[in-house]
């Protein structure tokens, strides 16, 4: 093994963790939900783990639930509850929004079946 060999082998091996971090990092199997307040992302959660959390907007607290690979608004401090009526989101590209409270959910994933959703 020459010095050049060592350099090549070591840098090749060193490249691998970097690749895993780049393409596997924070992309748990399946999709994620991005939570935005005023169009700015405040948190991202994997849809693989069932959980419930709350996000504060200008009007108050919106409640969000992740269950069985889907996500939805369960409550929001708005009058018409359109966001809650939107129901479960599952596919990459689907989104729901509580406009009065400026909170929105977008499903995103490496494996988006759709680029966007029409409704």
């Amino acid at each position: 093994m020459t010095r050049a060999d060592w350099v090549i082998v070591i840098s090749a091996v060193a490249l691998l963790p970097f690749l895993y971090a780049l393409y596997w990092g924070n992309a748990a199997p399946g999709d994620r939900v991005l939570v935005l307040v005023n169009g700015k992302q405040v948190l991202a959660a994997s849809l693989a783990t069932d959980t419930e959390f709350t996000v504060d907007g200008p009007l108050g607290t919106s409640h969000i639930k992740v269950h069985g690979g889907q996500v939805r608004f369960t409550d929001s401090p708005c009058a018409n509850k359109l966001c809650v009526h939107t129901g479960w989101l599952q596919h990459g590209g689907e989104f729901a929004a509580c406009l009065p409270n400026r909170v929105s959910l977008v499903v995103s994933g490496l494996n988006n079946r759709y680029d966007t959703i029409n409704f």
Binding site: T2, A4, D5
Partner: peptide, 13 residues
């Protein structure tokens, strides 16, 4: 490459 150059392992990788 200058110097002693690359060996078989380096080339193959």
């Amino acid at each position: 490459l200058p110097g002693r150059g690359v060996g078989p392992v380096g080339y193959c990788v």
